[in-house]
Amino acid sequence: MQSVVLGCTRVAHIRENIDAFGRGPLLADVSAAADAVGVELRGPRPAYNR
């Protein structure tokens, strides 16, 4: 696992996230789009392990 789950307010949220992890990695284009958003937001986001 290479992510941090934030904002879970119910056990159901955690279970949904664990189920999503089990579906495998994101498609390459979806991952690239998420990375592009991350670059745009780099300033205000916390620097976890960076």
Results as ranks from 00 to 15, higher is better:
M1T: 05
M1W: 11
Q2C: 08
S3K: 08
V4M: 02
V4E: 04
V4H: 04
V5P: 00
V5C: 01
L6A: 11
L6C: 11
G7S: 01
C8S: 06
R10Y: 13
R10C: 14
R10A: 15
R10I: 11
V11F: 10
V11W: 07
H13T: 02
H13P: 01
I14C: 03
I14H: 03
I14N: 02
I14V: 15
R15G: 10
E16H: 07
N17P: 06
I18F: 00
I18M: 03
D19V: 03
D19N: 04
F21S: 04
F21E: 11
F21R: 09
G22R: 08
G22D: 09
G22N: 14
R23H: 06
R23S: 08
R23L: 07
G24Y: 01
P25V: 02
P25Q: 04
P25M: 01
L26C: 07
L26K: 07
L27K: 15
A28E: 12
A28C: 08
D29Q: 12
D29S: 10
D29P: 05
D29W: 08
V30D: 13
V30Y: 12
V30E: 14
S31R: 15
S31E: 14
A32S: 09
A32F: 08
A33W: 02
A33L: 08
A33F: 07
A34T: 12
D35S: 14
D35L: 13
A36P: 00
V37M: 14
G38S: 00
G38N: 03
G38M: 02
G38V: 00
G38C: 01
G38W: 00
V39S: 10
E40M: 15
R42V: 07
G43D: 14
P44M: 04
P44K: 02
R45S: 08
R45E: 09
P46A: 14
P46M: 10
P46E: 14
A47D: 10
A47N: 10
A47C: 05
R50D: 08
